[in-house]
Amino acid sequence: MAEISKIDELTLIARSLAMDDTRAFGRLVDATREPLRRFLFNLTAGDASLADDLAQNTYIKAWTNLSSFRATSRFRTWLTSIAVNEFYSWMRSERTYEAIADDTADTLADTSSDHAHFTDTRIDAASAISRLSPVDRSLVLLFYMEDMPLRKICRMTGLTESNVKTRLHRARARMAQYLSSE
């Protein structure tokens, strides 16, 4: 999907808000869905169906709260913060998550074998990140993949800055250890 400029983005948001224009919102979804789905796919450690459910809920929340969007950030950044909240809410509602998370590396390996375009490096990266706890995984993805500043991550996750830094340091070491053993 082609990226849209910030002006186009604001125009589409204004149309969605003022005229209840679902077609304009559809264009926003089209322009942002692949990065968001990729983020959630890796956040859920390769659970495509859960990732799509969370992504759909994210867009529905965005639609219903569109008037609270502040144009100081990009629409995608705002979506990512909603997606993280959705993921955390889902985690709180699922007691079995840790059990699922323990099994994720195998799941990812199986999933990737269904997709011929997955290279070995991709499987390595996906396996390495899936070995982290869900919270650490969200921090790593937000900081290293989404380039989100620490302050924003703290606001989003409710963790202190020192806690985020410690978790990121530990996660990086764990990933390095896994990748070096491969």
């Binding site: 869905r33 692949e34 799509d52 639609w63 290279t119 490096t121």
Partner: peptide, 30 residues
């Protein structure tokens, strides 16, 4: 290195041609 690894090597979500229409179908009336 980690940033590059994650940005380039993490797999995309499987293709879903019907994603946008599923979202639009679920949008509540304002």
């Amino acid at each position: 290195q980690l940033s590059r690894l994650l940005k380039h090597d993490l797999p995309p979500a499987p293709q879903s041609h019907w994603f946008t229409r599923k979202v639009l179908n679920r949008l509540p009336g304002r």
